[in-house]
């Protein structure tokens, strides 16, 4: 199985997609952090509470939670890991080399976990360097063991890994690369955003992967839309694990018996 996982990682790292994803991820995170830094401590005109100031201990966890925004990129890599096999018909060669198809799926999921961890590490490192620099320049002090920092870090790892697996499951189900990418992005950016943003809809949203990840990280950032309705952190973790199993099952069921012609 380690051989198969290594082969799956080779598939990813022998094409140019992964570093394109890493670059876009850096740009995306940098953009978000720039906004957080610019708006830190600025109170909106209508008297609503704004973002915490840079020297406020609450700012750093908020900035670190931005590292989980890279979930979209691990999801895309997960989708591509699966759908490019169908797009370029390389699935034929893959199944000739490993005719026990369940093992191929397991290896892809294993590779998805590693990709998720890898992106979580680079995303967190990048975010931490930028955010800590900003806090120090802004006159604050750093305590990485304080508050929710360890839990947030764990949450970023879990989120990025889960979305990679989600991408693989979605890719196995849809198979058409473009359709899967559009579906996945609409899901993550539109559906989950809507169901996660409004407390009234969070009764549904909290059960979705995005809501569960939010619960795990316990980001109850006040959006001014009312008190948020999330699962407890452990509940979020359980829901995420349940999703991972579901994606694995879907990927397996849709792949193991189909004729490859």
């Amino acid at each position: 199985m380690t051989n198969l996982i290594r082969a799956e990682l080779q598939k990813l790292f022998t094409t140019r997609l992964w570093w394109a994803m890493a670059l876009v991820m850096f740009a995306f995170t940098a953009f978000g952090l720039a906004f957080l830094i610019a708006q830190a401590g600025v109170a909106p005109a209508n008297g609503q509470p704004g973002l915490p100031a840079l020297d406020d201990p609450a700012w750093l966890p908020l900035a670190l939670s931005f590292a989980s925004g890279a979930n979209i990129f691990t999801m895309i890599l997960g989708i591509v890991l699966m759908t490019s096999e169908y797009r370029y018909q390389t699935i034929t060669g893959t199944f000739l080399t490993t005719p026990k198809r369940g093992r191929v799926i397991a290896a892809k999921l294993g590779a998805g976990v590693i990709v998720g961890v890898f992106f979580a590490v680079i995303s967190l490192l990048f975010t931490a360097v930028v955010a800590i620099t900003a806090v120090l320049i802004g006159g604050g002090s750093i305590d990485l063991t304080a508050g929710r920092v360890p839990q947030l870090t764990l949450g970023v790892f879990a989120t990025l890994v889960l979305y990679a697996l989600f991408g693989i499951g979605l890719g196995a189900l849809v198979r058409n690369q473009v359709a899967a990418l559009i579906g996945g992005i609409v899901w993550a950016y539109v559906i989950e955003s809507i169901l996660g943003a409004f407390p009234a809809l969070q009764t549904v949203g909290k059960w979705l992967p995005g809501g569960a990840a939010q619960a795990l990280m316990n980001i109850d950032f006040d959006t001014g839309l009312g008190e948020s309705n999330l699962l407890p952190a452990w509940g979020g973790a359980l829901v995420l694990v349940a999703y991972a199993l579901l994606f694995a099952l879907v990927a397996n069921l849709t792949t193991t018996r189909r004729d490859i012609t």
Binding site: L4, Q10, T14, S84, Y88, T92, G93, T98
Partner: peptide, 19 residues
């Protein structure tokens, strides 16, 4: 079919690894 962005050698390396 092969992935167009992959080199000939990499294509065979992946098979070699998996097998």
């Amino acid at each position: 079919s092969f992935h167009p962005g992959r080199t000939a050698r990499d294509h065979l390396r992946i098979m070699t690894t998996a097998a």
